[in-house]
Write a protein that binds this DNA or RNA. Sequence first.
DNA 1: ATAGGGTTAG
Length: 765
Amino acid sequence: MNTTQNLCKTLLQNPSSVKSKSQAKQLHAQILRTSLSSPSLLSTILSIYSNLNLLHDSLLIFNSLPSPPTILAWKSIIRCYTSHGLFLHSLSFFIQMLASGKYPDHNVFPSVLKSCTLMKDLRFGESVHGCIIRLGMGFDLYTCNALMNMYSKFWSLEEGGVQRFCDSKMLGGIPEPREIGKCSNSHDLPCELDERIAGIDQNGDLNQMSNILYQVNTYKKVFDEGKTSDVYSKKEKESYYLGSLRKVFEMMPKRDIVSWNTVIAGNAQNGMHEDALMMVREMGNADLRPDSFTLSSVLPIFAEYVNLLKGKEIHGYAIRNGYDADVFIGSSLIDMYAKCTRVDDSCRVFYMLPQHDGISWNSIIAGCVQNGMFDEGLKFFQQMLVAKIKPNHVSFSSIMPACAHLTTLHLGKQLHGCIIRSRFDSNVFIASALVDMYAKCGNIRTARWIFDKMELYDMVSWTAMIMGYALHGHAYDAISLFKRMEVEGVKPNYVAFMAVLTACSHAGLVDEAWKYFNSMTQDYRIIPGLEHYAAVADLLGRVGRLEEAYEFISDMHIEPTGSVWSTLLAACRVHKNIELAEKVSKKLFTVDPENIGAYVLLSNIYSAAGRWKDARKLRIAMRDKGMKKKPACSWIEIKNKVHAFVAGDKSHPYYDRINEALKVLLEQMEREGYVPDTTEVLHDVEEEQKRYLLCSHSERLAITFGIISTPAGTTIRVTKNLRVCVDCHTATKFISKIVGREIVVRDNSRFHHFKDGKCSCGDFW
DNA sequence: ATAGGGTTAG
């Protein structure tokens, strides 16, 4: 024997020592050359190819085997199919292997179970479990770990068989298996499978057999009762599959760290938080210390419970054990700190990571956006692109709310373009975020267009659209969508009721609002929150039922905040009820003494009533307390550029032209019958001056700029950060009539559509 | 054979 042959022999005796494709090829060639190509040697080469994940080469050998494939050949090809994502092929070869009379061993089950899991075919997986038990493999460590993984994923397997038939594109370039067999309906297979392996029980030990039968009966319960698993509720399925998961775990004679991590993750992800945490403690009794997998399963629990203390404890443990550079733990930590509103700490963790993958980028982006740090979120998104990490569907649904809140339509549109090109536009999360973004940026029609194109609605997508209508004052559209949602069996939640109540309040629909408020508490058992109370109180105030609103707020089962009282105070201003306004202010100043808006509001109410002394007293009190009202500001986006108008600021390059246009506009408005409502302006100002002061309100400057800078017929969108005042509302109606185009004013995320001298929300503004 | 991120909110 020469040295080459010796080398070949050593390599063949230890196949896992072959580390490269070229080495494997050389070995293959040597064997063919020396005509030593016995089926067993070829199988060894096949297993080497399979180890190196070379599906094409593995199949070439497999299909040319002179005699029936050996166990090793079957195992190798099955594993290779699984790791290539060709799960159907993997399972079909598994069936063919059984059909050819070979008994599967403990090496093959992990691959087969992984295929079942990733194909979302739990029923097939359960049958394989039956097979495992009958073959006495129910005690193998790796097999049990794979089984537990399958059961822990039951929630993501719900749809069942969605990916059953693999993407045919994946088959390109790969030789077809010689015979796929009868695998067109994988649900028929288990029976055949059971028959084939029935014989094995005869040789089993009696004790073990009764044990096995007990297990088989337990696992097959669902099917023996003649029910499909769809009959069971989600809750029942949850306990059923979690039960299977735990049973496997309990039956295991030996458990390693992977077993513990799998059972912990399974419980943690299915809401059994306490059990998961208990198991982490129990793990210590088995002399196993939590590793990076354990920690990243446990951290999301503390993120959900907003338990900063426990989260920090885990962070400390991670640092002490050198896990703090792990991207998985890093992402969990970023998320945990962000959910505890500690975004600074999230950033610190992010910058400490030696490298960032898509998920850690997504975590930091979502962390910023969810905490209202929209500019920072956008900055990270940009940096992610620079780092050449391709944003995925999660990235887009995380960043979209930033555009919605900043009202940056041009950015939102750009992202929408990216989303369409990446084919993410049918994702429910993204579509809902897009609906919200377009609605918040004033394009309610585009929002509806996207909504109508969705194939699937969940509660959030309904709510986003309903809230969109509510904000735009389209109360009836909002209500009809809410009804449709209920008819289609989607249960509204806390936020959905906020949306429909906001819609009612916007349009002055008192009866409807009461109906929904009662339905929420009685039919859906949702405890009303501040937002629901605020919407109803706001509505009662708008329609002028001020005393009722006062009683309603006073009877709330939670302490009303300043914002609830200030909506009533605003209503008192509109309906000119000074007596109640003073009562409300008293309440307001007790809970929220720093509320500048309340002082201004009350002072305006005094002015309007001619009580100049009281108004002045308030202004002086404000000055003494060092409170200074921020000047009103409105902005308008024209050709991707944002123009801001701050009250009293004359620095806009077109200021003079705008003033000219305003003068002309005011004259036309007055000819149409507009009378400036100057009652709230300080009394010591000349009448002509008062007219001018009202005219130069920031939103009117912005609207005028829109009129002179956009082509006729364009909708003008103005974003404002202060409550629209009575005069502004009236004036905008006149302006819309004169210029004959739609004017949309956003005021505290509430939209007012002005057209032909009317406002979409009537007079219930 | 095991782990991390997402949409609606006066």
